[in-house]
């Protein structure tokens, strides 16, 4: 009987933890939504967050986008060459980037660069009683710290994804046209023909905004629940990156199924 209880408890605990985790996040999301009317007026705080999470991520996003674009150009060229369709390279690169690679990889990079930073910042603020001090000073930490980060994330990720896509397209152009001598007219005209503004570009932007919201939510939640120790904050930042990456990939599948 005891063994049976042990087995049920062992299997049940991860589910119970998952429900608690999801409940905690939902609770935080509701608090953030109620704080939005106040926080949206604090433009200086939102701009500060966009600067820290967005502007400071420009280099990593642009460089990553450039290399991903070059790999796409190289792989695409080699594959398309077998079917005699190398002129489709521009179209393949643009659609791959706009629909999938841009939003997904940007969100994962954002989680690694900015999300982990947000978790560490909030975790350390908690450990050094700064969150408590703010609360005792009659200022809601959700309104003052969390909501501006959330809004900043929703704005920054689509902009960073646009940068990633641009750098990626330039990277594939560099490999396809400059190095492999593909006709540049074909590259651009095929891209122009196949990419639809609403269907491809806008859907990509929506995906990025959703990913931005999810990654920021995970990051701030992990910061708030982090144990106020060095090890606790370190674990929380790791959890932010891992949870964000898995959530973004799972959500990408759902959004793709709904959108395309």
């Amino acid at each position: 009987m005891n063994k049976m209880i042990y087995i049920i408890a062992t299997i049940g605990k991860p589910f119970a933890d998952l429900i608690l985790y999801a409940g905690g996040m939902l609770n935080l999301l509701i608090e953030i939504i109620f704080s939005l009317p106040y926080s949206i007026l604090r433009l200086n705080l939102i701009l500060k967050e966009i600067y820290f999470s967005g502007v400071k991520s420009i280099v990593i996003i642009a460089v990553s986008g450039w290399f991903v674009g070059m790999v796409l150009g190289l792989q695409g060229y080699n594959t398309l060459e077998r079917f005699g369709s190398v002129t489709m390279l521009g179209s393949v690169a643009a659609l791959s980037l706009l629909r999938e690679l841009g939003p997904v990889l940007t969100a994962i990079l954002f989680a690694s660069r900015a999300g982990s930073g947000m978790t560490a910042e909030i975790g350390l603020m908690k450990a050094t009683e700064q969150i408590e001090a703010m609360s005792v000073m009659a200022v809601s930490p959700i309104k003052r710290i969390v909501a501006p980060k959330f809004i900043g994330g929703i704005i920054a990720v689509p902009l960073l994804a646009a940068l990633f896509n641009t750098a990626g397209i330039i990277g594939s152009y560099f490999v396809g046209v400059t190095l492999l001598r593909l006709d540049q007219g074909s590259f651009w005209s095929q891209m122009q023909d196949s990419v639809d503004l609403h269907y491809d570009v806008i859907n990509g932007v929506i995906k990025s905004a959703v990913f931005g919201a999810v990654v920021t939510l995970i990051a701030v939640y992990q910061g708030f629940v982090a144990k106020p120790t060095a090890e606790g904050v370190s674990n929380a930042t790791t959890k932010t990156v891992v949870s964000s990456a898995l959530t973004v990939l799972a959500l990408d599948f759902i959004l793709t199924a709904l959108m395309f």
Binding site: M125, T128, Q130, E132, A133, S135, A138, S140
Partner: peptide, 19 residues
């Protein structure tokens, strides 16, 4: 309570200044 706290002040053990 948040509103009432405007009439209170608290000094934390290590200051808790916003870094």
């Amino acid at each position: 309570i948040l509103h009432l706290r405007k009439r209170m002040g608290m000094l934390f053990q290590f200051g808790a200044l916003f870094t």
